[in-house]
């Protein structure tokens, strides 16, 4: 089982519903976020292209944050989901430094925090909060090891990219382009 997310940049309007839903679902304190929207513009007026991306922890197969964690707080669970155990985290920040996606932040309670792929929901058979609210249905979550899953099929059919492939992290968040 390899959980992954695919986000269709052709449909995303960058509304930020994923961000609000995550904050409320996971009680992320005001001023912090586990996911966010990035806008990149290429070209000069009027030859322009715009890409909006909902970004978060990439739940890398080769996760530098897990490798560099001195206490084992950062660890990998079922489906390849990368988690942080707050009680084990000493807040050293090594994982924050090591993440090429800048996906982690220091929670005011003293531990590091980040996206969990809403594993508590996934275990109940639900979609992550961000995926379940998205008005444009541009986000897909599923198991890459299941050839019949929507995400596997989309990745076969559509062109896609991952962020910072040069980092060699084997990320599990894909962008359909």
């Amino acid at each position: 089982m390899r959980y992954a997310m695919a986000i269709d940049t052709k449909k995303c309007v960058g509304c930020g519903d994923c961000v609000v839903a995550c904050q409320i679902e996971n009680n992320v304190p005001t001023g912090y976020c586990r996911d966010w929207v990035t806008e990149s513009v290429v070209g000069t007026y009027p030859q322009l292209e715009l890409e909006l991306r909902s970004e978060r922890c990439n739940h890398c197969e080769n996760a530098p944050c897990v490798r560099c964690c001195p206490t084992g707080a950062s660890h990998i669970v079922e489906g390849g989901v990368v988690l942080v155990t707050p009680e084990m985290c000493i807040g050293c920040g090594a994982c924050i430094e090591s993440c090429p996606y800048d996906a982690r932040y220091s929670h005011p309670d003293g531990h590091v925090d980040k996206c969990t792929f809403c594993i508590h929901r996934v275990r109940e058979g639900k979609q992550p909060a961000c995926v379940s609210v998205c008005p444009t249905k541009c986000m897909y979550f599923g198991d890459l090891d299941d050839p019949n899953s929507e995400i596997t099929q989309l990745l076969e059919k559509r062109k896609w990219k991952v962020l910072a492939p040069e980092a060699g992290t084997k990320p599990h968040v894909y962008y359909l382009i």
């Binding site: 679902e25 996971n26 009680n27 707050p86 809403c118 508590h120 909060a129």
Partner: peptide, 11 residues
């Protein structure tokens, strides 16, 4: 939630 130590809100 902070008082009760629960990690989730909507969740």
């Amino acid at each position: 939630f902070k008082q009760t130590g629960a990690a989730l809100k909507g969740g």
